[in-house]
Amino acid sequence: MDNWPEFIKQHFMTVPFVRFLDAAVVETGRGRSLITVPLRAEFANSYGMTHGGVVAALVDIAAGIALRTLKVRVVTVETTVNYFLPVATDDTLRAEARLVHEGHKLLHAEVDVANGENTLVAKGRAVFYITGEDTGEY
């Protein structure tokens, strides 16, 4: 495959959970991704703000997509999220993920999550385990 990051971008646009979130894979490159999610009322917590689980899912998805651009199959080992600001359910989230360490079996990524005004609302870290080479066959 000539343009693996583009293949990964297109592939993830067909994943049911990504589609449920109405997420858009805006950009991919080796070890990086940019994902947006338009929020909606169904994502609210008991305070009427966006549930932290939506943000955590976005961190995991963005990191996973960024790491799949390395042509490896991966599974999540650990995801941590630090929340800085609440996010309204009529906003849009933007997650920018990047590889920070590439080991033989473990990959580490960082993810910045911003709101529609480009204010940092959360920061995540993720560790993924490499299960093998990614050939694009599913």
Rank of each mutant, 00 (worst) to 15 (best):
M1I: 04
N3L: 03
F12L: 02
T14I: 01
P16Y: 05
P16I: 07
V18H: 02
L21H: 03
A23S: 12
V25C: 03
T28W: 06
T28C: 12
T28E: 00
G29L: 05
R32H: 11
S33K: 06
T36G: 07
V37C: 11
V37R: 05
P38T: 03
L39Y: 02
R40M: 06
A41F: 12
E42M: 01
E42I: 00
F43M: 13
A44Q: 15
N45T: 02
S46N: 08
Y47W: 09
G48C: 01
G48F: 03
M49Y: 12
T50N: 08
G53C: 07
V55N: 06
V55A: 06
A56S: 14
A56G: 09
L58I: 13
D60I: 00
A62I: 07
A62E: 10
A62Y: 11
A63D: 05
I65V: 14
I65F: 02
A66E: 08
L67A: 07
R68P: 03
T69V: 11
K71H: 12
K71C: 05
V72D: 13
V72Q: 15
V72K: 15
T76L: 12
V77Q: 15
V77T: 13
E78R: 13
T79V: 15
T79Y: 09
T80Y: 11
V81S: 06
L85T: 11
A88I: 00
D91R: 09
D91V: 05
T92V: 14
T92A: 13
L93I: 03
R94H: 09
R98F: 06
V100T: 15
G103C: 09
K105F: 02
L106S: 12
L106C: 07
L107D: 08
H108C: 06
A109T: 00
V111Y: 06
D112R: 13
A114D: 09
N115A: 06
N115P: 03
L120H: 03
V121Q: 05
A122D: 04
K123R: 15
G124T: 10
A126F: 09
V127D: 02
E133K: 15
D134Y: 04
Y138M: 08
